[in-house]
């Protein structure tokens, strides 16, 4: 600072180093571009010259079938979106409650803790599709009064059960990542357990787990398509019906691409959030 104003002039040595790094960067970009291009061309040629390509093209990539099937599939996708939003919200609630239950101390609360642990063990290990079948066909079979029978509701319940277990573990990892001294500091200020969690531990835990939560959200985005196995008229089910009618697989491709389009923004948000978290970790010395 006291060595005159501005930054020091780079020396000739530093300038040559920078020039070398620049030329290196240019060369690797070029190589990257070229190899991508070559790969794309080769893949294109191989696929389009395959003996079955003309048939595949008409049965999987028919523009007219795609256009005709789009409205119904979009209508179905609307149902998927509803399950996604409602389910996503409920997953957060369930996950948070279960993870908080698992952090409770004291012998009196042991039954609750055991219940939460059992829930997580059960639903984290069970394939979603099986939970869907069990909930979707088992619950209505009980014949209880007031038991919902709509595949929308039952599908959402199954998804929340499974994802709630995952997200509970994510939250718990976040809670445990907060340094124990933080809890001690909060308690020694007189905050009770609940205040300590709400004001001190959870805000820090949430920051840590946001990238992981976003990843789970992306997984959830495509798994909402599984409610079709219960007969819900979602995008996948609609595509299935259209395929049956037209003997053309293009509707599946359309539905698939729509799910991909849905996932891309979330993926970019997840990237940005985890990049920010990384930057924060690298810069600040979090005492």
């Amino acid at each position: 600072m006291d060595q005159g104003v501005g930054l020091p002039e780079p020396s000739a040595l530093e300038l040559s180093r920078r020039a070398w790094r620049r030329s290196r960067a240019r060369r690797s970009t070029l190589i990257g571009l070229l190899s991508t291009l070559v790969f794309a061309v080769v893949a294109y040629l191989v696929v389009t010259n395959a003996p079955g390509w003309p048939r595949v093209q008409t049965t999987f990539f028919s523009p007219s079938v795609a256009w005709e099937s789009l409205p119904l599939i979009l209508e179905g996708l609307w149902l998927n979106l509803q399950v996604l939003v409602l389910g996503g919200f409920l997953v957060l609630v369930v996950g948070l409650l279960v993870s908080l239950t698992r952090t409770l101390r004291g012998a009196a609360l042991a039954p609750l803790r055991i219940l939460a642990t059992a829930y997580v063990d059960l639903f984290r290990g069970m394939p979603l599709i099986i939970v869907l079948y069990l909930v979707g066909f088992g619950f209505p079979a009980l014949g209880l009064q007031g038991m919902p029978t709509s595949p929308f509701v039952l599908g959402t319940v199954a998804i929340v059960l499974v994802y709630g277990a995952y997200v509970a573990e994510v939250f718990r990892a976040g809670i445990e990542s907060v340094h124990p001294s933080q809890r001690a500091a909060a308690r020694s200020l007189g905050l009770n357990h609940r205040q300590t969690m709400r004001i001190v531990v959870l805000p820090q835990a949430l920051r840590t787990v946001t990238p992981a939560l976003l990843n789970d959200f992306i997984a959830l985005q495509k798994d909402v398509g599984l409610i079709s196995v219960l007969g819900a008229l979602d995008a996948v089910r609609q595509a299935q019906i259209l395929v049956g009618q037209s003997f053309n697989f293009t509707p599946y491709v359309v539905a698939g691409l729509l799910f991909v389009l849905l996932a891309i923004p979330s993926a970019r948000v997840a990237d940005a959030v985890s990049a920010r978290a990384r930057r924060r970790q690298q810069s600040g010395s979090l005492l």
């Binding site: 001294s181 500091a185 020694s188 200020l189 009770n192 001190v200 820090q204 979090l286 005492l287």
Partner: peptide
């Protein structure tokens, strides 16, 4: 909790909430 309110404690580190 009531008792802790009448004491102030400072540890070696990790005292402040980041």
């Amino acid at each position: 909790d009531q008792v802790r309110r009448r004491m102030g404690v400072v540890f070696q580190a990790y005292n402040l909430f980041p």
